[in-house]
Design a protein around this nucleic acid. Structure first.
Lengths: 257, 257
DNA sequence: GAACGCAATAGTGTCGACACTTTATTGACG
DNA sequence: CGTCAATAAAGTGTCGACACTATTGCGTTC
């Protein structure tokens, strides 16, 4: 009996805070969302080989949309593709994550600087308004909410930079580090997150690029230093989480299923 | 009678200076290279709708690898995908390009700074050696060579930053602005390009991050200012280039072969 | 004569099947 | 008993076909 994954459920559970010019018809898009969700939740484990047939059975579609989704996830860095061997879940290494955080810091600082140079008062008003609208009880939200709101905040800065490429880049990076950020948020309820956001807004109002960039660097650096610890939790989560779709290591062999 | 595009030829003509974790078996990879080449050379024109069947006939493969290639090109920004309408060639707009140049400047400056902070002498040695090996008769190379060597230079800086994500990002950006850069290179044989590379190397040797970043910013800025003019040439090229694969606007209607 | 709706055509999205490659299993040999 | 080769199984890469959607062209109506 094949376990079947409910694509609808996985869809609605998505964080959904990115802009993407691509929007496939149906199966493909859903497969993408579902598999990505499985990756984010570690239902599919790092370094595991992804079986296209098994995935297609689980999701109730043919291999074509599965492959389409996997290709997309590959170009976003979630999985890798080896010529005749198939797709593998990206491995869970600290270095790779630190590199990503560094890239994120670079993009965000540049975005902040450009925002300070270019944004009119109304733009900055949008930022202050956004932050004002989410600051109350910010830390009391469920982790997914906090994450979505935090990403929204930083994406708005990118947007106000006037360079849509920065938005795209940041959105792509966010998608790749979201899994570990969520774990961090679950672990630590650090109120400094709130205050640093407030300070960033203040710096934006004053158009103080240097100050804002320093705040962002520290803001992100703080996350990096917490990443080591979060990784331990992540690894724990990996090996205790249920295993609905991928056999990964312990494969069972039932002939006449 | 269907015109058939030689995939081998298009392959060998490629600049080929990127690292990419993805490497599909055969047809897919070739289709990717071929179509990308068509896009770079404006054989496929901006805003044109891409006909999968026609492409598959031209390249002599089925639609599956074509779609795979197009999906990949979509996630790299070469084409866009609209749900039930198919793929479209990215439009040729100035703004988008300037945004990309800006992003490139951001990535490269950050890479240079990190290189200055982290690279050991041997690393810097690689940079000086690389530049020394290509500086002689640099401007006398054919445009594609100049482009490849220039990209190699900047990618090496990214590599020496120690952050592989920066290499990936820069490679992706290069791929997207390559078409216009090639036109610029064909137009202008500016010797300042050479001297600014030399100066950048000198700054690297002195680990002078600020100086190097300023040089890079100017270096890239110079390209941006030339982009407007280059675009005119590009548009000219678009409407004079032969049209082997895509019907684009004037489609002929032959019923019985 | 122009706008609307309908039919025909073209084109994408998805499927199941097959060929070829990689991986696991079995059996022979040292 | 371990190593290696032959064989079987599993899995990916590609194909051609079909269903459904979008577009074009035509005829009708006002």
């Amino acid at each position: 009996m094949t376990e079947r994954i409910d694509m609808e459920a996985a869809d609605t559970a998505m964080v959904e805070s990115e802009q993407d010019s691509r929007r496939s018809a149906d199966s493909s898009e859903r497969a993408y969302n579902t598999i990505r969700q499985l990756l984010v939740e570690f239902k599919l484990k790092p370094d595991a080989r992804l079986n296209e047939v098994q995935l297609s059975r689980s999701l109730g579609v043919s291999r074509t949309p599965i492959r389409e989704a996997l290709n997309r996830l590959a170009s976003e860095g979630f999985v890798s593709l080896t010529p005749n061997r198939g797709f593998f879940v990206r491995s869970l290494s600290t270095e790779g994550l630190i590199d990503l955080y560094e890239l994120r810091s670079i993009i965000e600082c540049a975005a902040f600087r450009l925002m300070c140079e270019r944004a009119v008062d109304a733009d900055i008003g949008r930022l202050t308004a956004y932050w004002a609208s989410i600051v109350d009880g910010y830390q009391d939200n469920p982790p997914d909410e906090i994450l979505a709101k935090d990403e929204g905040f930083h994406l708005l800065i990118a947007e106000l930079s006037g360079n849509p490429e920065l938005v795209n880049q940041l959105a792509a990076i966010n998608a790749r580090i979201r899994f570990i950020r969520r774990i961090q948020i679950e672990r630590t309820h650090d109120p400094r997150q709130v205050s640093s956001h407030s300070e960033i807004v203040a710096a934006a109002v004053r158009r103080d690029a240097e100050r804002g960039m320093k705040l962002l660097r520290d803001h992100i650096e703080m996350s990096v230093s917490a990443t080591q610890d979060a990784l331990k939790d992540a690894l724990l989560k990996v090996y205790t989480a249920p295993d609905p779709a991928a056999p990964a290591r312990g494969r069972r062999r039932v002939k006449g299923g």
